[in-house]
């Protein structure tokens, strides 16, 4: 499956200073997982290359727009090991560049003309922003529960995975409610597994990409594994846990054995989610005809590498 070229400077006005430079940096290093997912779903559905490119570009534009805004909201200095856009250019340019990507999404989809796809995309962008808003309102809430976090992540992360599964069907003119309800549930699970895996990186678990650790905690945010790990902790221990400056310090406060036990429990819990996803993938087969059934073969292997970060 070849990597789709998401960004082309010829699609953006050259007279806007620094815009293309900003986008060159932004789109240079991304993994493009979401556009890859679009290709995996679109292939068995037999969508034309032009449509696949439109969908892939749409989701990557939305995702990267959210990254531009997210880095500014969180005041993150780095993105993918390089200075974040707001830090390298200006906060104003980062905001406007994100807005511009979302505007291009709407313009491109409108030109394509599928009203249901446009409507659904607009709803997903709303969900994404809602998730960001709610997450920002939860900073320094150290007693948040996993269920509450899951609702935020379903909006922020899950919404894009749901779009990747549903948009190709919408582009093909498949609008059956039961089908889309099922894709929603599958997308929710993929988003959940992706987010929880990302949260584990913050504790240096399966951190092959060398992401900086404890970034969430230092930003005032208890992520899903942090919630799981600190559950039932004595108040004084939890206070010290939340003030940890290094992973070594955190593990010594929480206890190495507790850390390992909770990690094993977290992994078992999420393995249950993978099993549930595979069950729903089987159900999806009932909605597919002929060559479309190859989609099941594309979707079944997804959650394991997503969660376990195995290549």
């Amino acid at each position: 499956m070849k990597k789709i070229k998401i960004y082309d400077s010829r699609d953006f006005p050259a007279y806007l200073p620094k815009l293309n430079g900003l986008y060159d940096d932004l789109f240079a290093d991304g993994k493009g997982f979401r556009s890859l997912l679009i290709q995996k779903v679109s292939g068995p559905l037999g969508l034309e290359d032009q449509i696949v490119h439109l969908l892939a570009q749409t989701i990557e534009f939305i995702h990267n727009a959210s990254l531009l805004h997210d880095d500014l909201v969180d005041r993150s200095q780095l993105r993918r090991g390089k200075p974040a856009a707001w830090a390298k250019y200006t906060p104003e340019y980062a905001v406007l560049a994100g807005d511009y990507l979302l505007a291009r999404v709407m313009a491109n989809l409108s030109r394509h003309g599928n009203v249901r796809l446009i409507q659904y995309t607009a709803e997903v962008i709303s969900d994404l922003l809602e998730g960001e808003w709610i997450q920002d309102s939860l900073v320094r809430d150290w007693n948040i529960t996993l269920e509450q976090l899951d609702r935020v992540h379903n909006l922020k992360t899950g919404s894009l995975f749901k779009w990747c599964l549903r948009a190709p069907f919408l582009a093909k003119g498949r609008y059956e409610k039961e089908l889309h309800d099922l894709l929603e549930e599958m997308g929710t699970l993929l988003g959940l597994l992706f987010q929880r895996s990302d949260d584990l990186l913050d504790f240096d678990v399966r951190n092959r990409e060398g992401k900086a650790v404890l970034g969430d905690l230092k930003s005032g945010y208890l992520n899903s594994f942090g919630v799981f790990l600190s559950r039932d902790m004595a108040p004084d221990v939890k206070e010290r846990f939340l003030r940890s400056q290094s992973l070594g310090e955190l593990k010594s406060i929480a206890g190495e054995a507790r850390f390992d036990d909770r990690l094993a429990e977290f992994d078992r819990f999420n393995s249950g989610k993978i099993e549930l996803y595979l069950h729903l993938a089987e159900r999806l087969a009932g909605f597919l005809d002929g060559g479309e059934k190859a989609l099941i073969g594309e979707l079944r292997p997804l959650p394991k590498p997503l969660y376990w970060r195995a290549t």
Partner: peptide, 15 residues
């Protein structure tokens, strides 16, 4: 019943 986070699906089908 398995938890759902999607309002519509919780009403129409259950895993």
């Amino acid at each position: 019943p398995v938890r759902s986070m999607n309002v519509d699906t919780a009403r129409e089908e259950v895993t």
